[in-house]
Computed example of a mutant assay.
Amino acid sequence: MIRSYSDHAANERTFLAWLRTGVAVIAFGFLIDRFDLFVRTMAAAVSINPADRAQLEALSSHLGHGAGQGFVLVGIAFIIVATFRFVRTGYRLDDQKIHPPGMATELSLSVILAVLLLVATIPLVFPGLF
C-alpha cells in the first residue's frame, strides 16, 4: 500500500482538474480564433449587401485573432504548470519536511487569464472601437 495514499490521490485529482482547465482554455481560444476567421470570410462574401458587410467587419478584428492565440498559449501554460506542480507535490508528499505553500504561479496564471478575457470582450462591448 502506498503511504498517504489519499494525499497522492488528491494530488492526482487536482492534476486532472488542471489538465481539464488547460484543455478548456485551449478549446476556447481555438473557438475565438476560428469564429473570427468565419466572420472575416462572411464579410468577404460577394452576395452580402454593404450594410451587412460593414456590420460583420465591425465584429471581426485582429484583436480576436490575437486573443484566440493568447488563450491557446495560456492553456498550454496551464498544462505545463500542472505537470510541474503534480510532480513537485508528489515529491513533497513523500518528504517529511514541512513546506510553505506557494501561490505565485496560480495567481499569475489567473491574472493572465482574466486579462485575456477582458481583451476578448472589448470588441463585444465597444464594436466600433476596432
Rank of each mutant, 00 (worst) to 15 (best):
I122Q: 08
A104D: 14
Q96P: 02
V125I: 12
D7A: 08
L31C: 07
V74N: 04
V81E: 06
D7W: 02
P127M: 00
M1W: 06
V111D: 09
D94F: 05
L113A: 11
A67I: 02
L73F: 15
M1S: 10
S4E: 12
I26N: 03
M103I: 13
Y5K: 05
F71S: 05
F86H: 10
F38G: 01
G75M: 04
R13M: 09
F78V: 03
V115M: 07
L56I: 13
F78I: 00
F71L: 02
R20M: 12
V125C: 04
A77W: 15
R34F: 13
T14S: 12
H8E: 05
Q69V: 07
R85Q: 11
R13F: 01
V125E: 08
H8I: 07
L19D: 04
V46Y: 14
L59V: 02
I26Y: 06
A27M: 11
L37T: 15
I48H: 01
F130G: 04
A44H: 13
T89A: 01
A67V: 09
T83S: 07
A27E: 04
L113W: 14
L37H: 15
R88I: 01
A51E: 14
I48L: 15
A77S: 06
M42V: 11
G102A: 01
D52Q: 11
A58W: 05
R13D: 12
V74G: 01
D95A: 11
A44S: 10
I122S: 00
I80M: 04
P50Y: 03
D7G: 02
Y91I: 08
L63Q: 10
S110A: 11
D7R: 07
Y5C: 00
D7V: 07
A51I: 15
F28W: 03
R20G: 13
L113S: 14
F78K: 06
L93Q: 02
T83R: 06
V23L: 03
S110Q: 00
A45T: 09
V39M: 07
L31A: 05
F126I: 01
R3H: 08
V39N: 01
I32H: 01
P123E: 14
A45P: 00
L19W: 04
V74L: 00
Y91P: 06
A45Q: 13
F35M: 02
L117K: 02
T83K: 06
I122C: 03
D36W: 04
D95R: 10
T14D: 05
L117I: 15
A27G: 07
G66H: 06
R53N: 00
F86R: 12
A58F: 08
R53V: 09
M103H: 09
G90E: 04
G70Q: 08
D94N: 12
A9S: 08
F38V: 06
I32F: 08
L109W: 03
T21A: 04
L73K: 01
E12K: 08
D36K: 09
